[in-house]
Design a protein around this nucleic acid. Sequence first.
DNA 1: TTGCTATAGGTTCCTTTGGCTCCA
DNA 2: CTGGAGCCTTTGGAACCTATAGCA
Length: 952
Amino acid sequence: MRNRDKSKSQTQSSGTLARKSQEGVNKFLRRSSRLSSSGKKEQDGFFLENDLKTNDQEVVHTMDVCNASTVEGCHRDAIENSQAKEQEVVHSMDVCNASTVEDCHRDAIENSQAKEQEVVHSMDAHNASPGDDCHKDTLLDDSEEMNDSDWEDGPILKSDPVDRSPNERMKGLTIEFDEPSGSTGGRKPVRRASAEDKASLLSLLPTHLLKISEVSNITANALTPLVTWFHDNFHVRNLARAERSFRTALATALETHEGTPEEIAALSVALFRALKFTARFVSILDVTSLKPKADTYEPSNQVAERVSGGIFSTSTLMVDNLKRASIAPSPVQTSPCNEKDDHGISSRKSKGGCSTSNVAQSRDSTSFKESTDGKSTCQVQPDTSRQCVPKNSQGLKRKGDLEFEMQLAMAISATSVETHENIHDSSDGNNSLEASIPMKRWKRIERVESASCFQGFSTALGSRKVGSPLFWAEVYCDGENLTGKWVHVDAVNAIIDGEQKVEDAAAACKTSLRYVVAFAGHGAKDVTRRYCMKWYKIAPKRVNSTWWDSVLAPLRQLESGGMGGTIKVSEHPGENSSLDRVILPEKSGQEASKEYGSKIEVESSVKGSFVATRNSLEDMELETRALTEPLPTNQQAYKNHALYALERWLTKYQILHPKGPILGFCSGHPVYPRSCVQTLKTRERWLREGLQIKGTETPVKVLEQSTKLKKARVSEDVYDEIDSKETIELYGKWQLEPLLLPRAVNGIVPKNERGQVDVWSEKCLPPGTVHIRLPRVFVVAKRLEIDYAPAMVGFEFRNGRAVPVYDGIVVCTEFKDAILEAYAEEEERRAAEEKKQTEAQAISRWYQLLSSVITRQKLNSYYRGSSSSQPSRNIQDKNIETKTPVQSSKDNKQPTAHRKANNQDTTHTTSLVALEVGHEHVFLTKNESFDAENSIRTKRCECGFSIQVEEL
DNA sequence: TTGCTATAGGTTCCTTTGGCTCCA
DNA sequence: CTGGAGCCTTTGGAACCTATAGCA
């Protein structure tokens, strides 16, 4: 706002626009102030409408700034002032922060309907993170942010009071809240844009810079004055972000020309888009390392940004911060010397090995005071705060642990200093001391970053480096490289086309460059290759590329489509406005869609081809970078390098073929292309892949047999070691040809030396044979007298040794049908027989059970009331005397059924006959059972009769 | 202080086709 | 006598990874 007058004085048009914008801002600020002071905070879906008509202009502003970190987040804000007499300016601003794939946000500022000219500006800054994990704290932050994210929030005004003279009131301001077309009941209601957001960047821009949008083939150099102007007018200064939402923060940044790096970067993207440049918001994703230990040292500046509730703080999280927090408890708790606090922050790694916190604190504890010009400066300040005494300091042995202690001490000391400041700062009673401690800590770190940003990319503060480039813009310059080029534009640091500097700057600040993602059109694209010159260092730290590509695939499409909406087609300058209107349906919902729908169809093909070409060109560029990476300077980098290799780092099963060309040297060792590295295998191994060695080829490499086999030979008393010095002959792929196994002739299956066929794959089957994978099928082949070979399909490591696994047989193809048919019959017969046996067994058991029951009943009736003086004799007599009833019982019931069901069961038939003609029970020992609990021994006869004897 | 190399130690992966007894 | 089933007992070398010392 301070530059508003300046801009007004520069041009009539822009000045008028600026004035109108400022009037609108002030009007809305007053309204927001009233709402805030009355305590009636507007809730979601707030709708406010005022009509404002000025003398000469009616400016339509639609601003939609979204910051959502949840899936449901989709918001749209719109402020419109319409019907200008002399100008029609449409500004579209779209600043999105989406932390999930589904996030959809849209912002738009529109000023429309000018008489003499129609300019459509769109600003669209997106920050979307594909990560689906959100820290609990982050979610809470976002939740709070959503709650107070109404642009009319009172705290906006509290935090940043501006002069709002009643004379500056605008009358007839129309503010509408349009429900997003795609919004559903589950989505967040729309919100109004704040008054601050109506401050158009374009209205601040000098006229001569506005003309840059008319340049047909923009180049990087042409952007210099624009970036310089932006750098001069917008400064990085980390404000108390925790106290306000992103929307308010961005509005404030727009108004005060100060903000966090991501805010400034987002505004720069918005500016580029407003000027009809094709621009993207680029961010280094703050990701957790694949290896948990590596998380110990996390860039403090990134953490600070995240915790402080920065615009994209949540969106760049790929791993749940809650998980991080679970790893290390909060330092606010009893043990302050943990790796991370409750915000998931970790200390930066710093070499030095000082285990005493005092030294660390005195060296690195810093405080900052603001100079008169508003810029932050930093000072080293002795720390008198509490010391960090790690619980497990005695047990820590590693250097890294000591370093960590030191770093943590720094963090704690810094916290303490901030606490003192906070007591002073929070005198207004807004924040309690306890609640403000973490926030203040991050504020401090942010200030460090802020200070560093004025000095360039990298700033060292003691051993802790801050100021890493995290956010910047990419502008597509169609005047570069004949075909156009994405140009790195860091408006915060006033650096244009400095993509080579990013990696070094990030490395200097110990920021990992694992993922650099460009955001646009609700999508994202991985452009790490553009900024990473040492891919071999990055690649091992990235997730599986296949997974990552699949995750990004839909986002890439969105990004591509989104960029199409803001593309500048210089070939048709006269149609700029109409083309740019194509973005409006995307921005403004269904109504605009209907209005411009026809134009979309007409222009989409032209646009689509252009975008496709641009995307393919960029893909080619990134791919080219992947293939032209500079040679690493250390040898170990070649060990797993995707492009280059050193011969000394090859394994014994690898060889260089062809051995050249030599691409360079590293420590005197020639560097070869990785494509020259060939994997060698034995003849048997190649056979598994259906390949065999050509007849004239000799082993390209010969290895001695492993000592394991030598030992085995020695153990077998085979001492002819000279003769037994067997070797492993290795062959390369270029020595191979397709496997030519002998063909099956006369129904005979060709077998190997073990009389089998190794079926590693279908390629290993001799021609004319087929693999039948059925259990017991060999029985059928044998019965049919068909030649077959067991099919060995692999090995199973069992009992300390490899055991071959067989599955089915290999037979000649002509016997396949016969075998299958016979197999079906055999299986049917086998099933029937199995069923018959099962039934017979069941009947036998039933017979045995019933016989036992009947016998028991007879015994009970026989001995009831009689003397038990001669039990053995009685039993014998009983057996004889009860024979008839038992027999009659069997004749009447079970035996009849049994005979009918199983006439061939000669065993039971014999038993029955024996009973009928005077069977004498025989109690075999093998049929006895003993109940140890009751000391009762049960003796059984083959006929089913049993007696129980209590043993004394 | 940083980066590189060599090395040690631990971990992971790959290797790979018995022989005996019992019982039907 | 034969053939099938079950049991025994649990490798070791190479590659790979990580930490560390030493050096420039």
